[in-house]
């Protein structure tokens, strides 16, 4: 099958790859670029484990064709920590024991980041709504909801 050249920024750094035409962004990120933080849970848009942020919007990388991402700015959970310091969401997930097997965690954190980027002071209902496309088998969700609310509070304290 014909290879297609794509160029995008991943967590701020330039990437250029040849991908199979029709390859998903999830496969391009994991197998070509080597960013394995987005997980393939269902490969059909129902679990949220593959969530990434493309040009500021939360997207499912398993349903996004890699070739449609040329010129895009892509953010994944792997790019959140800066200089070895965890992002407030990562810190809060750790502190709240919001991750067990960890398979859902990168997708949850992307969904939460997309929420907080638009809604820095969310209600519990906002958080539940934002996470409703992401499945977790282990935690029972409550610790995840609490982690997102805690991260939102710590963000607003940093600004104040």
């Amino acid at each position: 099958m014909a290879k297609v050249p794509i160029q995008f920024t991943l967590n701020g750094s330039e990437k250029a790859e040849f991908v199979e035409s029709g390859a998903t962004l999830l496969n391009a990120l994991r197998d070509k670029v080597g960013d394995t933080s987005p997980k393939g849970g269902c490969h059909q848009g129902t679990c949220g484990a593959c969530s990434v942020i493309i040009d500021g919007e939360l997207r499912l990388s398993c349903l996004t064709l890699a070739e449609t991402c040329s010129g895009a700015a892509i953010i994944t959970t792997a790019g959140l920590a800066e200089g070895g310091v965890l992002h407030p969401l990562q810190r809060a997930f750790l502190d709240a024991f919001a991750s067990q097997c960890g398979f859902c965690t990168p997708g949850m954190i992307m969904a939460a980041k997309a929420l907080l980027d638009h809604t820095p002071d969310p209600s519990r209902e906002d958080v539940v709504e934002a996470l409703s496309g992401n499945i977790c088998r282990c935690t029972g969700y409550e610790p995840i909801i609490q982690a997102v609310l805690t991260a939102a509070r710590s963000n607003s304290q940093n600004v104040a």
Binding site: S132, Y141, I144
Partner: peptide, 17 residues
């Protein structure tokens, strides 16, 4: 036929625990 049809309660269906 796959886990898409396998229901579990989501973050909106939590009981007060």
């Amino acid at each position: 036929t796959d886990f898409n049809q396998y229901l579990m309660p989501g973050p909106g269906d939590l009981a007060d625990t």
